[in-house]
Amino acid sequence: MITGLPALTHEQQQAAVERIHQLMADGMSSGEAIALVASEIRETHQGGHIAVRFEDEDDDKA
């Protein structure tokens, strides 16, 4: 599967990590915090995107 991911600067990445840590400190699970921040980034990101390919290991087995 090929998808486009937001291309974030180092500062944007650091801000996202800090937000995730704060949400976790406030009692949110890590998975929920990551999903929430990722969703916020997708909704508000104005920059470019990078192409990423994800390979499903199950497809390789015959």
Rank of each mutant, 00 (worst) to 15 (best):
I2C: 01
I34N: 02
E40R: 14
R53C: 03
K61Y: 11
L5Y: 01
Q46P: 00
T3L: 12
A62R: 02
G4K: 10
P6D: 02
D58W: 07
E43L: 13
I50E: 02
G47I: 06
A33F: 00
I34Q: 06
P6M: 07
I41S: 03
A7S: 05
P6I: 15
T44D: 08
K61N: 08
A33E: 06
I41T: 02
S29E: 10
E40T: 12
T44C: 05
E32C: 14
A33I: 03
Q14M: 05
E18H: 10
H45L: 13
Q14E: 14
L36A: 15
T44Y: 00
V17H: 12
A38S: 14
K61H: 13
M24P: 00
D26I: 04
Q13K: 13
G47E: 03
A16V: 06
S30P: 02
I20P: 08
G31N: 15
I41R: 00
I20E: 02
G48H: 04
R53K: 09
F54S: 06
A35V: 01
A51M: 07
P6S: 08
Q46E: 05
A25M: 09
E11S: 07
E57K: 15
R19L: 10
G4I: 04
S29I: 04
D59S: 04
G47Y: 02
D60I: 01
S29V: 03
A25R: 15
A15E: 07
A33D: 05
A15K: 15
D56M: 14
A62F: 11
H45Y: 04
T9H: 04
S29H: 00
L5S: 13
V52R: 09
R42M: 08
A7W: 03
M1D: 10
F54A: 04
K61F: 15
L36M: 11
I20L: 10
D58R: 13
R19T: 10
H21L: 13
Q12N: 06
H10K: 11
I34Y: 09
I20D: 04
